[in-house]
Design a protein around this nucleic acid. Structure first.
Length: 117
DNA sequence: TGCATGACAGACT
DNA sequence: AAGTCTGCCATGC
């Protein structure tokens, strides 16, 4: 494995990736929401770290994860700083000055969405 | 080994 | 209300 993720962390990272993969196109969620869903609400920074590592894996829509106020703080970690915004735009999400417009309407909360049913 | 640093968030002042 | 501090925990130097 070229990635430096230890076994004991793989679970957390994997869980994060699983959730991120479940985010529907055109929807977004936050680091904190994912952390909370995983039972460690205060480990949102680790979710960010997981997203950093997510680029090494396929099919992880990291662009659908932003901070709690809908700001694209992670855009610098993409191959180009406009990639994140462009991908969101393609999914129908408008971004103005790194801020997702009408953020709450696009917000996808795993605590809610993954608990129904 | 110790200290600083994050794609964060919430508490506190 | 806005700025600061703290928890989280893996990494890098």
């Amino acid at each position: 494995m070229p990635i430096s993720i230890n076994d004991k962390h793989r679970d957390f990272f994997d869980s994060v990736f699983e959730i991120v993969k479940l985010i529907p196109s055109g929807r977004v969620t936050s680091y904190g929401a994912i952390a909370k869903y995983l039972g460690s609400a205060r480990s949102s920074r680790m979710v960010g770290w997981a997203m950093n590592a997510s680029h090494k894996f396929p099919n992880i829509p990291a662009h659908r994860v932003v901070n709690r106020i809908g700001m694209l703080t992670g855009k610098f970690h993409f191959s180009s700083i406009t990639e994140m915004e462009e991908k969101l735009f393609d999914e129908g999400i408008k971004v103005e000055k790194d801020q997702i417009q009408d953020f709450t309407a696009h917000f996808w909360d795993p605590m809610i969405e993954l608990n129904i049913g």
